[in-house]
Amino acid sequence: MTPWNLLDLDRALRASWAADTCSPDDLPDWHPGNPAWGHCDITALLVHDLFGGDLVVGEVHLDGVQRGHHWWNRLANGVELDLTREQFRRGQTITTLRVVERPPGPVLRRGAEYLLLRERVGARLGPLPEPSR
């Protein structure tokens, strides 16, 4: 396995996010100028595959209205890692965060997009470890 660092992972993710890996709910607003848009859930799962830790989810609010959810990671050492936070450019706020346990087995919701993102990132970084369970 070729060694890589967090900057390598960030670059590989940014080069791999695309319309075909965006959440269908977010696809109407996705564009290459904001490639992280609609990718937080599968990105958080991929980071969890690589580093373990916790999955964290919060509610996204804009103008006082909930507009969905946002996912990120809390690593085992307590550091919170959010590689898609910059997608929020219109003043959205994230509230009501909670840690969620990753269900065992394969990714069911957005499984095809998750596998495609894993494949693209792996093509850039080299073989990735098996998903954390």
Rank of each mutant, 00 (worst) to 15 (best):
L6I: 15
D25E: 12
R109S: 08
L9Y: 03
E130W: 01
R133A: 15
W71T: 06
L50S: 04
S132D: 10
A123G: 12
R102A: 04
L55K: 00
R118L: 11
N73M: 11
H39F: 12
S16D: 01
P106E: 14
P106M: 11
R14M: 13
L75S: 01
G64T: 04
R110D: 05
W4D: 08
G58Y: 01
D41F: 06
R89E: 15
R120E: 13
R11F: 06
N77R: 05
H69R: 11
E59V: 13
L128D: 07
D25N: 10
S23N: 11
G105A: 08
A15G: 08
T84F: 02
E80L: 03
T43H: 10
L128C: 13
L45H: 12
E130V: 15
A18R: 01
H31K: 02
A12N: 06
D26I: 02
D8Q: 04
R110L: 13
L81M: 15
G64F: 02
D29N: 06
E80Q: 06
R85K: 04
W72Y: 15
L50Y: 06
C40S: 12
G105H: 07
R11T: 11
R133L: 15
H31A: 04
R102L: 03
D63G: 14
E130H: 07
L117V: 05
R110F: 15
V107T: 06
A19Y: 01
V65H: 08
M1A: 14
L108Q: 10
D20K: 00
L125D: 06
L50R: 00
V107Q: 02
V121L: 08
A19Q: 13
H31N: 09
A15H: 05
P103V: 07
D54V: 00
G91I: 09
L108N: 12
L116S: 09
E101M: 10
R89D: 13
C40R: 04
R90M: 13
L7F: 14
V47M: 12
L27A: 15
T93G: 10
E113N: 07
W4L: 03
D49C: 14
L62I: 03
T84R: 01
H70D: 02
W72G: 00
T84N: 00
P28S: 12
R74I: 07
N73Y: 01
G58F: 02
G52P: 04
D82S: 05
T84W: 00
R133H: 15
P24S: 14
P28L: 10
N34H: 13
V100W: 07
P32K: 01
G126K: 02
V107R: 01
F51N: 00
T43G: 05
D26Q: 10
